[in-house]
Simulated scan of single mutants.
Amino acid sequence: MHGPVSSGWLLVALCAATGAYCLLRMRSRVVEQRRAAGGEALMGFGMAVMAVPAAVFTLPGWVWTALAVVFGGAGLHALWAAARTGAGHLHHLIGAGAMVYMAVAMAAPAGHGHGHGGSGTPLLTGTLLLYFVAYVLVTGVRLVPVATMPGVAEGAGWGDRPELARACRLSMGIAMVAMLLAV
């Protein structure tokens, strides 16, 4: 990623910690929460890899291709799930598409823009930025009520806490905005 090294490493740490927490959420008793947590863990770790500061370590070119393929597959899975169960998976589809877009932009030959390689299309970058800024704002508002969440049993496991899942999604949304600004 292009930018100060310290903020790049903070972004790596945030994304990796979020991915690790999402792995813990995969122990939920609810099947749908486990599936969502798995996709979010993949997203968190993928974003951590993409956020490694270019000034410190330049990732090999094959990493960008591998990330594009992995998130292309995740996007196809989200598309299939959205077609099967409804709009709940559209955010994962957009997130996977954004990851493919950033991987392709970063794999472009050096000297054609920011980051590790080339820059993205301004219209697509702007559209994705608008979506993720709106997503962050809406998700942040949903975290504001601190009262006990209805339907959350006392002693619920870490994977069954909806407010922690929202905080996880919020942190990844914020990281996505930061990464899109660097494309």
Rank of each mutant, 00 (worst) to 15 (best):
G3V: 08
G3P: 04
G3I: 05
V5L: 09
S7C: 01
G8E: 06
G8W: 09
L11Q: 09
V12N: 08
V12E: 07
A13L: 15
A13Y: 04
L14V: 15
C15S: 14
G19D: 06
Y21F: 14
L23K: 03
L24Q: 06
R25I: 00
S28E: 04
R29M: 00
R29S: 14
R29V: 12
V30A: 09
V30R: 15
V30F: 10
E32W: 08
Q33K: 14
R34S: 06
R34L: 06
R35G: 09
A37M: 10
A37Y: 05
A37I: 07
G38F: 10
L42G: 14
G44Y: 10
F45D: 13
G46Q: 06
M47R: 09
V49N: 03
V49L: 13
V52K: 02
V52M: 01
P53A: 03
P53T: 04
A54W: 03
V56W: 13
P60M: 09
W62D: 13
V63C: 15
W64H: 13
A66H: 10
G72Y: 03
G73S: 07
G73I: 09
A74F: 01
G75A: 14
G75H: 02
L79V: 10
W80S: 10
G86P: 05
A87C: 00
H89M: 08
H89G: 10
H91A: 14
L93N: 03
I94R: 02
G97F: 04
A98Q: 02
A98S: 13
Y101I: 00
M102K: 06
M102I: 11
A103Q: 11
V104G: 05
A105Y: 04
A105H: 07
M106L: 11
A107H: 13
A107V: 03
P109K: 07
A110D: 06
H112G: 15
G113S: 06
G113L: 07
G113Y: 05
G113Q: 06
H114I: 12
H114C: 07
G115W: 07
G118A: 12
S119C: 02
G120C: 03
P122Q: 05
P122W: 08
L124E: 02
L124Q: 01
T125V: 11
T125G: 05
G126C: 02
G126S: 11
T127Y: 01
L129C: 03
L130C: 12
Y131F: 15
F132E: 01
Y135F: 14
Y135E: 04
Y135C: 05
L137H: 08
V138N: 02
T139I: 04
R142N: 08
P145H: 08
V146S: 11
V146N: 01
V146P: 00
V146D: 07
A147D: 12
T148Y: 05
M149E: 15
M149W: 14
G151C: 13
V152K: 13
A156L: 13
G157W: 09
G157I: 10
G159M: 07
G159T: 11
R161L: 15
R161A: 09
R161M: 12
E163L: 10
A165L: 12
A167C: 13
A167K: 02
R169Y: 04
S171K: 06
S171L: 15
M172Q: 15
G173T: 02
I174E: 02
A175N: 10
M176T: 00
M176V: 00
V177A: 04
A178H: 04
L181V: 10
V183T: 14
